[in-house]
């Protein structure tokens, strides 16, 4: 789980081009959207692609993402339970 969280932080920073951040800056329970990392709607769509590409999880409705992308902690739990690769 810890390894997955670290991997997620690295991927999020890379995929979403969060140049100013390092994995140490992102806490497990930081809000990814809104006041936390300040991600926006395109970032959410890009995270949906990441879920598909890296973990074989297909989300069809972007609104499902709202809960799943709450924080790295929540996301890691969701991936552990649903991953197909």
């Amino acid at each position: 789980m810890e390894a997955l969280k670290k991997e997620l932080k690295e991927n999020i920073i890379e995929v979403l081009n969060l140049e100013d951040l390092t994995i140490e800056d992102v806490n497990d329970d930081d809000a990814l959207f809104g006041d936390g990392l300040g991600l926006d709607s395109i970032d959410a769509l890009e995270l949906i692609v990441m879920l598909d590409k890296d973990y074989g999880i297909k989300l069809t409705d972007p609104s499902e993402g709202r809960e799943i992308f709450k924080s790295v902690e929540v996301l890691a739990t969701y991936i552990t339970e649903n991953r197909t690769k």
Binding site: V15, L16, I42, L45, E46, V49, K53
Partner: peptide
């Protein structure tokens, strides 16, 4: 095949 929305925009 993983079309990227962040690139597409």
């Amino acid at each position: 095949f993983y079309p990227s929305p962040a690139i597409f925009v």
